[in-house]
């Protein structure tokens, strides 16, 4: 009943950690996950696009500040944020997930806009919800919250609770 089609065997070998474009490739519950460092993010994605992963299905992020002990392959240091990109190769019917570690003190990632224009809105959403900046993004503004909102709601240190209604100069 798996909804996934795994990458074909060529890149997989017997050892635990396989490398794809020099980045550790991990099999997680039958799904391929590639841990890319932030410096090589754009470069690796460009290579992957040429390899057939032409469609960027999803781009999101996770704030791991309460779960720093998560399992990561050797050589990858846990940082507070992780940007998660889901790629799809339509012709070979396979998926690949990219996880990029983003440090707390410099939450910024290069934008994928030039490669996958469809990520424009998703990156804005991640910026809105997590405060991760995407350098070179054509329109770095909030997308879901009002423009003058303070804080980034999906961060773990942002309270969930209800807050009083905010009016922006509406006549009462």
């Amino acid at each position: 009943m798996s909804a996934e089609v795994t990458t074909d065997g060529t890149e997989m070998s017997e050892d635990e950690v396989t490398l794809l474009h020099g980045c550790p490739l991990v099999d997680s519950r039958g799904q391929q996950v590639l841990f890319v460092s932030r410096d090589r993010y754009l470069e690796v994605l460009r290579l992957l696009t040429d390899e057939g992963f032409a469609m960027c299905v999803d781009l999101t992020a996770v704030d791991y500040s309460r779960f720093m002990t998560r399992e990561l392959p050797d050589g990858v240091t846990a940082e507070r944020f992780e940007v998660v990109v889901n790629l799809l190769d339509i012709s070979a019917r396979r998926r690949l997930r990219i996880r990029v570690q983003v440090p707390e003190n410099d939450p910024s990632v290069p934008s994928l806009f030039d490669l996958h224009p469809g990520t424009e809105a998703m990156e804005r959403e991640v910026f809105d919800m997590f405060g991760i900046a995407f350098s070179d993004h054509p329109d770095p503004s909030r997308i879901l919250m009002p423009e003058d909102w303070i804080g980034h709601p999906l961060r773990k240190d942002y309270e969930t609770g209800s807050i009083p209604v905010q009016f922006k100069g509406a006549p009462s």
Binding site: L144, P146, I163, V165, Q166, F167, K168, P171
Partner: peptide, 13 residues
């Protein structure tokens, strides 16, 4: 939503 609230009020007005 918080973003919609001012609009709702305006429509009401």
């Amino acid at each position: 939503s918080q973003k919609m609230a001012p609009v709702l009020r305006q429509v009401y007005d």
